[in-house]
Simulated scan of single mutants.
Amino acid sequence: MIKISLALLLLSVAAYAQTGNVELMPGNRYFHQMHSVEFPLNASRKFSWQQLGTIIKYYDKGSGKNLPKDELMNQSYLVYNLSEKVALKSGLFYTNVGGYHPSVALQFKWKLKKGILLLSPRANLSRVQAYELFSLVEYKIGADKKMPVVVRYQGMSSVGLKGHNRSYQAFRIGMQVKKNQLGAGITLDEFGKDKRVYSNFGLYFRRVW
């Protein structure tokens, strides 16, 4: 986990053509690492490659089938940019619980004057049906200052034929210095049909490029 995080940080320095971020948050219940990387495949930037990932490592998993387990999620997509705001994505979705599934998604992205709004519906193209909606809102207070305050919400909800699968809502607030962010965060995780809720809060570090 640490090696993956360090490799992403080094990659962000070496690969100027890429866009992306990596976030580390040691919380009260688990260590959380998220990253997103995208780089163009041609000069027109019509086609690009996108890779998204999450690692959740619990300090004390305890016992019992209803308790949350360590998580590994990875999504890899070939992206066709229909416009600056709309993109079509096709690739593979992986979790350590469900394995690999072919996946297709749309991405809607709006660049605001002081932030960004992104929505991305996704669906499995396999017998194990799952439908997901990812959303992200980021706003910078004092965006023209050297150290703006960054407020961000990131959420995901996944449902299947039997109802709710997995959801989370992540809230972050911090200061940004150049390409680095440091602040406080809380993540609310929901599991299963009865939507059992667990919280994880702590300090986070985020590198953007």
Rank of each mutant, 00 (worst) to 15 (best):
E138G: 10
H32A: 04
R127F: 01
Y80W: 15
I186K: 11
P40C: 05
A170M: 01
Q176L: 09
A143S: 14
A17E: 11
K89R: 05
N66Y: 06
L10M: 04
Y198H: 10
V177K: 13
Y16P: 14
R207F: 13
R196S: 13
R29P: 01
N180I: 07
G98A: 11
L41W: 11
I4G: 11
G20D: 01
F205T: 03
S126W: 04
W209G: 07
E84S: 12
Y168W: 10
T187A: 07
L136W: 08
G53C: 02
Y16D: 15
L6A: 12
Q107H: 00
H35F: 13
Q50C: 02
K195H: 09
G192R: 08
K179E: 08
L11D: 12
V128P: 07
I56V: 08
Q169Y: 09
I2T: 15
V128T: 11
V151G: 03
Y139S: 05
M147F: 12
L119T: 13
D70M: 03
F93E: 01
K46W: 00
A123F: 04
A130V: 04
E71V: 07
G185E: 10
F191S: 06
I2A: 15
P68D: 00
P102T: 01
K178I: 01
E190H: 12
R166G: 00
I141M: 11
